[in-house]
Amino acid sequence: MPSSRPPTSRGAPPPRADTPFTLAPGEPFTWHSESDAPEPERLSPADDRLSADAALKRVRRGEYLLYTGDFHNARQLLGAIGRRLGHAEKARSPLEAFRAERRARQLEHETLSRIVVALDSQYRLGLSRAPDVALACRQVWGEPTTAFTLVPLKQLLGMLGAAEWRRKGLSVPGLTGLLHPHYGVYLPTRTDYVELLLSVPDVKGKRVFDVGTGTGVLSFLLLQRGAESVVATDCDSRAVACARENAERLGLARRFQAMEADLFPEGQADLVVSNPPWIPEPPKNRVDRAVFDEDNRFLQRFLEGLPSHLAPGGEGLLLLSNLAVLLGLRPQGWLEEQFARCGLSVKWTRSTQARHSKAKDRSDPLHAARSREVTTLYCLVPAPRGA
């Protein structure tokens, strides 16, 4: 999230587009961090002379390194530091492996995020041979508000990659037209859950709620199959903007409404669909919220509120992986107990084995669990009275 130092009376003139620049001590800047890390209190200069070993020692001491050298050398430095961090420790159980993997990923994120770069008042990157990053920055942050912006290089690289996905678009099975994801919105590259939705019968003429819409992909599949309308919600403003833009691109905006909301929209629908976060652990950053659901809070609240948001004869469609059960993060049978507690019955299910790349990667620390992962589509209806 951004933070901004108050401006001073002294401002540096903007550099030429082809001229690397540095941030002077005391210069006002805006700091952007996806993990809400506080802005650096002290920045140490670094350039192409810095070795990966020396950089790692310095960031481990708590330094933030403001890189002012060559863009390609900076990327190589990040990679070299990452390789020196090693891998997650060996674990005896899937749960231990999961915990170790998360610790390793968090350490990598915290370490690499201390390599920082500066952008000027036009979002030009102050490194030689730097690409044009202005569009990617404006897509995520809007217009610059101070003379300089600081951002972890690792985050900026992620933004550049996302901007390319957004430009090219993504083909999704069953969807006519391309989906254009935004930075920070879950990318539906795992198509197993999307394909399960194609098996839902009788969607024509149905009014739909899509809870936690993300890119809007589930809404668009249902609309293209004949659903009358969709009201979609998401707690993240980026996801709402992404879904609206994609509805326009696909010619579905007239029947699609997206709003920022904690969970359900008001009223009732014939179909209520959700593909909630499937790992009941705390998210580490904003992007994590699409995958991690601390203490199953989102899932439980969805199930508790579902009966009251179903129109007479309506159905709830829940897409959920069993990876949490395989990792030992959720006991076997817990989900069925929640259905009963919330007054819901399972009308039917469809399941598919995970086909994403990690399920086939034997070098992955979680391969034992991921190779057995199954995603299930549950069709839920209110339980009969007295059941």
Rank of each mutant, 00 (worst) to 15 (best):
residue 142 G to W: 13
residue 220 F to M: 08
residue 279 I to W: 00
residue 277 P to V: 04
residue 88 A to W: 02
residue 104 A to F: 10
residue 371 S to R: 14
residue 232 A to E: 01
residue 105 R to E: 15
residue 359 A to L: 08
residue 207 R to W: 04
residue 194 V to W: 00
residue 131 P to S: 06
residue 43 L to P: 08
residue 237 S to C: 02
residue 231 V to L: 04
residue 144 P to H: 11
residue 28 P to L: 11
residue 212 G to S: 04
residue 288 D to Q: 05
residue 192 D to R: 09
residue 326 L to Q: 13
residue 349 T to Y: 04
residue 247 A to C: 12
residue 183 Y to C: 14
residue 74 A to D: 03
residue 19 T to Q: 14
residue 285 N to V: 04
residue 98 F to Y: 14
residue 294 E to C: 12
residue 3 S to W: 14
residue 90 K to Q: 15
residue 278 W to M: 02
residue 148 F to N: 00
residue 32 H to F: 15
residue 36 D to V: 04
residue 81 I to S: 09
residue 303 L to A: 08
residue 7 P to T: 15
residue 143 E to I: 01
residue 30 T to G: 02
residue 124 R to T: 10
residue 74 A to V: 08
residue 195 E to P: 05
residue 8 T to N: 13
residue 28 P to S: 02
residue 268 Q to V: 14
residue 324 A to D: 13
residue 377 L to V: 09
residue 9 S to W: 07
residue 285 N to S: 06
residue 167 R to Y: 13
residue 329 L to K: 01
residue 252 L to W: 12
residue 291 V to L: 13
residue 220 F to E: 00
residue 303 L to S: 11
residue 199 S to R: 12
residue 342 C to L: 00
residue 114 R to K: 15
residue 265 P to F: 04
residue 191 T to Q: 12
residue 10 R to G: 07
residue 306 L to E: 06
residue 180 H to M: 03
residue 97 A to M: 07
residue 272 V to F: 01
residue 117 V to T: 13
residue 120 D to A: 05
residue 74 A to M: 01
residue 192 D to S: 15
residue 366 L to Q: 03
residue 177 G to H: 11
residue 327 L to G: 11
residue 281 E to S: 11
residue 107 L to P: 06
residue 16 R to I: 12
residue 302 F to C: 07
residue 187 L to D: 03
residue 286 R to N: 03
residue 229 S to C: 03
residue 158 G to I: 10
residue 127 L to M: 14
residue 277 P to F: 07
residue 65 L to C: 06
residue 217 V to Y: 00
residue 330 R to I: 00
residue 109 H to P: 00
residue 117 V to P: 04
residue 51 S to D: 11
residue 304 E to S: 11
residue 98 F to G: 04
residue 345 S to D: 14
residue 305 G to A: 11
residue 43 L to W: 12
residue 133 V to L: 06
residue 246 N to H: 12
residue 266 E to G: 10
residue 259 M to C: 05
residue 251 G to M: 10
residue 346 V to M: 10
residue 214 G to Q: 00
residue 25 P to V: 13
residue 90 K to R: 14
residue 154 K to I: 03
residue 127 L to R: 13
residue 269 A to Q: 02
residue 232 A to S: 09
residue 62 G to N: 03
residue 200 V to W: 11
residue 162 A to I: 06
residue 95 L to Y: 07
residue 163 A to N: 03
residue 1 M to G: 12
residue 67 Y to C: 02
residue 285 N to Q: 06
residue 315 E to I: 10
residue 371 S to A: 13
residue 258 A to H: 09
residue 118 A to L: 09
residue 247 A to F: 04
residue 164 E to Y: 06
residue 307 P to E: 10
residue 54 A to P: 06
residue 69 G to W: 02
residue 238 R to S: 10
residue 65 L to R: 09
residue 231 V to S: 00
residue 216 G to P: 03
residue 169 G to T: 02
residue 14 P to F: 02
residue 240 V to D: 05
residue 81 I to F: 03
residue 341 R to M: 09
residue 194 V to M: 07
residue 45 P to V: 12
residue 301 R to C: 03
residue 231 V to E: 12
residue 383 A to Y: 08
residue 245 E to I: 05
residue 292 F to Y: 14
residue 92 R to D: 13
residue 280 P to C: 09
residue 328 G to E: 10
residue 143 E to C: 05
residue 340 A to W: 00
residue 294 E to T: 04
residue 213 T to N: 03
residue 9 S to A: 15
residue 246 N to D: 11
residue 296 N to V: 01
residue 366 L to Y: 07
residue 220 F to S: 03
residue 314 G to Q: 08
residue 68 T to F: 00
residue 299 L to I: 09
residue 79 G to D: 14
residue 385 R to C: 02
